[in-house]
Simulated scan of single mutants.
Amino acid sequence: MQPTSRKIRTFALASALLFGMASHGAMAADSGKITIMVGGITKLIYLPAELTQQLGYFKDEGLDVELLSQPAGVDAENELLAGAVQAVVGFYDHTIDLQTKGKDVKAIVVFGQVPGEVEMVSTKASETLKSMADVKGKTLGVTGLGSSTSFLTQYLAGQHGIPSSQYTMLPVGADASFIAAIKQARIDAGMTTEPTVSKLLATGDAKVLVDMRSVEGTKAALGGTYPASSLYVQSAWADAHKADAAKLAHAFVRTMQFIHTHSAEEIAAKMPADYQKDKALYVSALKASLPMYTSDGKMPADGPATVLKVLSGFNPAIKGKHVDLSKTYTNEFVAAK
Score class of each variant (00 low, 15 high):
residue 2 Q to K: 15
residue 2 Q to G: 10
residue 4 T to D: 14
residue 6 R to W: 10
residue 7 K to Q: 10
residue 8 I to D: 03
residue 10 T to R: 13
residue 13 L to G: 03
residue 15 S to H: 11
residue 22 A to N: 11
residue 23 S to R: 14
residue 24 H to F: 06
residue 24 H to M: 15
residue 26 A to I: 11
residue 28 A to C: 12
residue 30 D to V: 08
residue 30 D to M: 13
residue 38 V to L: 02
residue 39 G to E: 03
residue 42 T to K: 15
residue 42 T to P: 00
residue 44 L to D: 00
residue 46 Y to A: 14
residue 47 L to E: 12
residue 50 E to L: 13
residue 52 T to V: 09
residue 52 T to E: 06
residue 55 L to W: 01
residue 57 Y to W: 04
residue 59 K to I: 00
residue 62 G to Y: 07
residue 64 D to K: 15
residue 67 L to E: 08
residue 72 A to Y: 07
residue 80 L to M: 12
residue 86 Q to I: 11
residue 91 F to H: 15
residue 92 Y to S: 08
residue 94 H to G: 01
residue 95 T to H: 07
residue 97 D to P: 00
residue 99 Q to N: 06
residue 99 Q to S: 14
residue 102 G to P: 07
residue 103 K to Y: 01
residue 104 D to H: 06
residue 109 V to A: 02
residue 110 V to F: 06
residue 122 S to C: 08
residue 122 S to L: 01
residue 127 E to I: 01
residue 131 S to R: 01
residue 131 S to H: 01
residue 136 K to P: 09
residue 139 T to M: 05
residue 139 T to H: 05
residue 140 L to G: 04
residue 141 G to W: 02
residue 142 V to Q: 09
residue 144 G to D: 10
residue 148 S to Y: 07
residue 149 T to P: 03
residue 150 S to C: 09
residue 152 L to H: 03
residue 154 Q to L: 01
residue 160 H to L: 06
residue 162 I to V: 12
residue 162 I to R: 07
residue 170 L to R: 14
residue 171 P to K: 08
residue 173 G to K: 13
residue 174 A to P: 00
residue 177 S to R: 09
residue 179 I to Q: 07
residue 179 I to H: 05
residue 179 I to Y: 00
residue 181 A to K: 11
residue 186 R to Q: 11
residue 187 I to L: 03
residue 192 T to G: 05
residue 199 K to H: 13
residue 202 A to D: 08
residue 205 D to K: 10
residue 205 D to R: 00
residue 206 A to S: 11
residue 207 K to P: 04
residue 209 L to R: 09
residue 211 D to V: 03
residue 213 R to S: 09
residue 214 S to D: 07
residue 219 K to D: 10
residue 221 A to P: 10
residue 225 T to H: 04
residue 225 T to P: 14
residue 233 V to M: 12
residue 234 Q to H: 01
residue 238 A to E: 02
residue 238 A to Y: 06
residue 241 H to A: 00
residue 247 K to V: 10
residue 253 V to S: 04
residue 255 T to L: 08
residue 255 T to S: 04
residue 258 F to G: 01
residue 259 I to P: 02
residue 259 I to A: 12
residue 265 E to M: 05
residue 267 I to T: 02
residue 268 A to M: 08
residue 269 A to T: 10
residue 270 K to H: 12
residue 271 M to C: 02
residue 272 P to N: 11
residue 272 P to L: 06
residue 276 Q to P: 03
residue 279 K to Y: 01
residue 280 A to K: 14
residue 280 A to Y: 04
residue 281 L to I: 05
residue 282 Y to R: 11
residue 283 V to M: 06
residue 285 A to G: 09
residue 288 A to D: 14
residue 290 L to C: 10
residue 291 P to Q: 06
residue 292 M to F: 09
residue 306 T to V: 13
residue 309 K to Y: 11
residue 312 S to R: 13
residue 312 S to Q: 13
residue 313 G to P: 04
residue 315 N to L: 14
residue 317 A to G: 07
residue 318 I to D: 05
residue 319 K to T: 12
residue 322 H to P: 03
residue 323 V to H: 01
residue 324 D to E: 12
residue 329 Y to G: 03
residue 332 E to H: 03
residue 337 K to N: 14
